[in-house]
Computed example of a mutant assay.
Amino acid sequence: MDRKIKKYQKILTDFLVAESISKDLGTIELQVITDFKNNHFQLVETGWFEKRFIYQVVFHFDIKPNGRVWILVNNTDTLVAEELIKKGIPATDIVLGFHPAHARQYTGFAVA
């Protein structure tokens, strides 16, 4: 299990770093936040746009102790689950956590 979790940590980190590099938002900073001990991974936008302060979680992933990757936030039009499958995480290990538990059985991904 530890080997799988380390693999998923790398995939998620690499994905978030690539996303942060690919976007130029001017005065808005993209921060990759990784917590390898508790397995939380985020991409956050923060900074000033005109006279407004921006703070938004773009992506948030967790890896649970059972090795499943939970997609908790996706504030983009990217089909992030499909991207993670391409990078080596099987659909059976991806949970769309932003869907209610009763609806996950219809997503084609893991339910929990």
Results as ranks from 00 to 15, higher is better:
residue 37 K to D: 02
residue 69 V to T: 14
residue 73 V to R: 14
residue 43 L to F: 05
residue 67 G to L: 01
residue 75 N to V: 04
residue 11 I to S: 09
residue 30 L to Y: 02
residue 93 D to N: 13
residue 99 H to I: 06
residue 12 L to I: 03
residue 76 T to D: 05
residue 99 H to E: 12
residue 64 K to C: 05
residue 37 K to G: 00
residue 47 G to Q: 10
residue 104 R to A: 11
residue 51 K to Q: 03
residue 61 F to S: 11
residue 93 D to R: 13
residue 80 V to H: 07
residue 41 F to S: 01
residue 78 T to V: 14
residue 55 Y to H: 13
residue 8 Y to T: 01
residue 112 A to E: 15
residue 85 I to W: 00
residue 69 V to P: 06
residue 48 W to H: 06
residue 59 F to L: 04
residue 34 T to M: 05
residue 65 P to V: 07
residue 61 F to R: 09
residue 82 E to R: 15
residue 19 E to R: 06
residue 47 G to N: 08
residue 17 V to C: 06
residue 84 L to I: 11
residue 69 V to D: 05
residue 35 D to T: 01
residue 74 N to E: 15
residue 23 K to S: 06
residue 52 R to A: 02
residue 72 L to G: 14
residue 14 D to A: 07
residue 25 L to Y: 02
residue 26 G to T: 05
residue 51 K to H: 02
residue 2 D to L: 03
residue 37 K to I: 09
residue 92 T to D: 15
residue 42 Q to L: 10
residue 65 P to N: 05
residue 66 N to W: 05
residue 94 I to A: 09
residue 7 K to H: 03
residue 10 K to L: 03
residue 109 F to I: 05
residue 99 H to F: 15
residue 112 A to M: 10
residue 59 F to H: 09
residue 99 H to Y: 15
residue 32 V to Y: 00
residue 88 G to M: 13
residue 105 Q to Y: 13
residue 57 V to D: 06
residue 26 G to A: 01
residue 26 G to C: 00
residue 102 H to I: 09
residue 89 I to W: 01
residue 31 Q to Y: 07
residue 50 E to P: 02
residue 105 Q to S: 14
residue 47 G to S: 05
residue 74 N to L: 06
residue 108 G to T: 12
residue 17 V to G: 06
residue 7 K to D: 04
residue 93 D to W: 11
residue 2 D to C: 04
residue 42 Q to F: 03
residue 86 K to W: 09
residue 33 I to L: 11
